[in-house]
Amino acid sequence: MNIFRLAGDVSHLVAIIILLLKIWKTRSCAGISGKSQILFASVFVTRYLDLFTIFISLYNSSMKIIYISCSIATVYLVYFKFKATYDGNHDTFRVEFLVVPVGGLSFLVNHDFSPMEILWTFSIYLESVAILPQLFMISKTGEAETITTHYLFFLGLYRGLYLINWIWRYYFEGFFDLIAIVAGLVQTVLYCDFFYLYVTKVLKGKKLSLPA
């Protein structure tokens, strides 16, 4: 464990909590892409199946349980409890265009052709594009609530910190996982446009509105 990976995990946890609190407190999931939340829940479920097979550390197991439960709770809030506030008309990204290629690629490019490894690879590839429905929805509505931009900032930051963690681990431990690194790069690059808007607008107190 190094400071960048810990900061990344904390940033990820902050993002997940911000979203859950935003929906719970405002009793509304306006502006939130339910499709992205379903993809994130799938990412955690397919990646953390080893929760029951191997024990790495209390930290590792408890974070996995928190991520899985918070993401499933968020999906429940969006599609059931606060379904009336779900903006389905703008959450129209065709997720099959993500899941099918990612599913195929995880069978073709992986470290080991075993069920657990293929599911892990699927989860890594899926996570790198899971935010697309959310970014697509913001581009369609032309704006995002400020709290939603903070959620996206920490979510994008987390994998960026993981990239630094992988540089650190390669340099000090000789460890590197090309699949995770390439997917992490794609994932972080997808946020660049948002990061620019976040820094130039939201951090200056303006609302995030895209030129519609």
């Binding site: 990976r5 995990d9 990820h12 080893d50 191997i54 790495i56 590792n60 974070m63 996995k64 991520y67 470290h111 080991d112 075993s114 490894e117 892990w120 993981y162 963690n165 460890f175 996982d177 995770a180």
Partner: peptide
């Protein structure tokens, strides 16, 4: 290749 890297990351 079965060099599955250790999965100690989240």
């Amino acid at each position: 290749d079965t060099d599955t890297v250790p999965k100690d990351e989240l």
